[in-house]
Simulated assay, not measured.
Amino acid sequence: MRKLLAASLLLLSFISLNVSPVMAAEEEEGKTAFIMHHIKDAHDWHIVDIGDHAISIPLPIILITDGKLDVFSSGEFHHTDDGSVPVVRGENTYLKYHEKIYLADENGGLTMDADGHPTNAKPFNISITKNVASMLISVAIIFAVFFTVANRYKKNGVSAPKGVQSLIEPLVLFVRDEIAIPNIGKHHYKKFMPFLLTVFFFIFINNLLGLLPGAANLTGNIAITATLAVFTFIITTFSANKNYWKHIFAMPGVPKPLLLIMIPVEILGMFTKPVSLTIRLFANITAGHIIILSIIGLIFIFQSVAVGPVSVALGSAMTFLELLVAFIQAYVFTLLSSIYFGGAVEEAHDH
């Protein structure tokens, strides 16, 4: 218990060290502005601030401008975010402003509109950002784990699991026996298992990685959650049988005049399902990060020693709660996907 408490205090202390300089730097814009700084995507991987010096890992900037490819390190922007230090690449001059890259105007700067937003042209940006790098790391972890488990099964056959098998096998059986079979059925679940296992472990591992100090907020990025939801929508739509479409366009037992109302509602429901999947995962993960950072930020807002122990205690409790949320959100996304698949392949005589 003491070791667990010490680890929690060390984790929260590291987070505090990470956010306090940002807090001071953005005090004029509001004392909570540092929260959004830590949950948004970036072109470099910020590790920690020591005094006024930021320690970051530069990531590749990959831009396409007028059909020409420009590749360079994000370190060439010198960690500025106000567009004051341009990067000249041949005929093109690039500026970074709020983690977006623009082409410099004829004066070598940014042209702002009345609302303070740049009006400069943007190159086509396919850079390896912090979230992309985190996703690649998680994919590498997933491949390493499952190739290791698969090779052990090939070598030892069906036997008592050892090592990483002891962790992975119960989770695989849980997805199969508690999610796939009850919601899809014994006759159809197997073809959906690769996707269900992939999405479960992808979300779960990235949720856990997102809790590490300085980590990326991948599953709190709505583009990632939307992509996963779109895959669920596509698989559901292309797996659907006649009975599924019959219940949308010609519902049994419904008077024909009511079909004029029910058909648009059912079609709308097809598209609201992936939207709900997207927002549910994005909102829950993002909210967890914001709450933890807000609790730790209280130390710097009130600037009181008395607030420190309370913030650390609450932050520690919230961090452990987020470990549970990491599993729950992976479970819920996989569960709802399996329910949609089950509805798409259900036969008319099934009960």
Rank of each mutant, 00 (worst) to 15 (best):
S239C: 10
P60D: 00
G30T: 00
K68C: 12
L136H: 00
A287I: 15
K130T: 03
A223S: 05
H38K: 05
A283N: 14
H187F: 14
L211S: 05
F238I: 14
S337E: 02
L11F: 10
D82N: 10
N120R: 05
A6K: 03
G67F: 12
K154S: 10
I292V: 12
V88R: 13
T80P: 01
L212V: 08
F320Y: 14
I101Y: 08
I126L: 12
N217H: 08
V139N: 13
L95M: 11
K273R: 14
H351T: 15
A144F: 12
P257I: 00
I267W: 01
F320M: 14
S127V: 06
S166A: 11
E322Q: 14
T237F: 02
L268Q: 02
R176Y: 12
K191G: 11
R89H: 11
I261M: 15
T286M: 05
D113E: 13
V310T: 13
A7K: 01
L167C: 15
S16D: 06
F192D: 00
H79N: 15
L17A: 11
V158T: 14
V85D: 03
P252K: 09
S138H: 06
F249I: 09
G157W: 07
I61S: 02
E29N: 15
T236H: 05
V345N: 03
I291R: 00
L324E: 10
Y153Q: 15
A121G: 01
I61G: 00
P60F: 03
S138T: 01
P309E: 04
I50R: 08
V172N: 03
I234Q: 02
F204L: 08
T319E: 07
